[in-house]
């Protein structure tokens, strides 16, 4: 089973996105054999009230709820985030999405800590993209800062009950770095769409140092072209069992299978 842990629906303010409607994304998913996609609202990245992105995401995915697991994009620095989180939980959203750089807060802020704890208590994994776009092509109104693995690791160390997913990440490639021991002690998973399986082979390196249970398949659709991640899995020199975990088993475990949607017969 292939699950894409890093997908979006909706519009992005700084660049046209194609295939950003549910029906269009589903067509691509079907072509590549992606059974389910974990989707966040692209609108919510830059909306002042990011919860409006969640509203649109729910409307868009409702007819296809067996194929999408929705991230609730919540800004803990904005008004009444608890209401937004409660509503997303009532709608069956399966994960939390944070944009600390775009939304102007720190993962160390007390209110962020309360949001992470609330999500963890509700069983939602916390997903954080390192970046939305490459900063070198940034729009002049966009930010340059990216989220560091150190920031997320520190948050994971503070919130041991929470599960963190770092998307668009590139792992450190120093084999003896103390960071590996720290990463192994917390619930932190890394999505692989910016990594490689040839030459420096950062995916293989990550599997070697953190374990095959911690790597998640993602595409970045519809921001990014889908074959890149599939080629990485094709080129990855790893046992079939490890690939199966990366392709979907790990994500299914994180998101708490069996699924809550009764129409899902898998």
């Amino acid at each position: 089973m292939i699950i894409d842990v890093n997908a979006f629906l909706g519009h992005y303010a700084f660049r046209r996105l194609r295939h950003n409607r549910a029906s269009e994304l589903l067509a691509i998913m079907d072509h590549f054999g992606i059974v389910r996609a974990c989707v966040a609202s692209a609108d919510a990245i830059l909306y002042r009230d990011s919860h409006m992105g969640n509203v649109l995401l729910r409307e868009e995915t409702l007819p296809h709820s067996e194929r999408f697991w929705c991230y609730a994009t919540i800004n803990p620095a904005y008004a009444e985030w608890r209401h937004d989180l409660r509503q997303c939980l009532a709608w069956g959203f399966k994960g939390l999405r944070l944009y600390p750089k775009h939304h102007g807060y720190s993962l160390q802020d007390p209110e962020t800590a309360r949001l992470i704890e609330a999500a963890a208590e509700a069983g939602l994994p916390v997903s954080i993209p390192v970046r939305v776009e490459d900063p070198r092509q940034r729009h002049w109104l966009d930010i340059e800062a990216t989220v560091s693995i150190e920031e997320v690791l520190a948050a994971a160390e503070r919130h041991r009950i929470a599960t963190f997913i770092l998307t668009e990440s590139v792992p450190p490639l120093q084999p003896d770095a103390a960071i590996w021991a720290r990463m192994r002690r917390v619930n932190l998973y890394l999505e692989m769409s910016r990594m490689t399986a040839v030459m420096e082979n950062s995916i293989g390196f990550l599997i070697q140092h953190l374990g095959e249970d911690r790597v998640l398949f993602g595409t970045g659709l519809p921001f990014k072209t889908p074959s890149a991640s599939f080629l990485k899995m094709l080129a990855l020199d790893a046992p079939d069992e490890a690939k199966r975990k990366v392709f979907g088993e790990n994500t299914r475990h994180i998101f708490g299978e069996p699924p809550r949607y009764p129409q899902n017969k898998e």
Partner: peptide
């Protein structure tokens, strides 16, 4: 950078005859 519509936009702008495959170390 693997933006989803980069190639199709490029072909629309300059055609396909001036496009060359290359990796510059970003293989996949």
């Amino acid at each position: 950078v693997v933006d989803e519509d980069m190639m199709d936009r490029t072909v629309a702008a300059i055609g396909a005859e001036r496009l060359l495959f290359a990796t510059d170390m970003t293989y996949e």
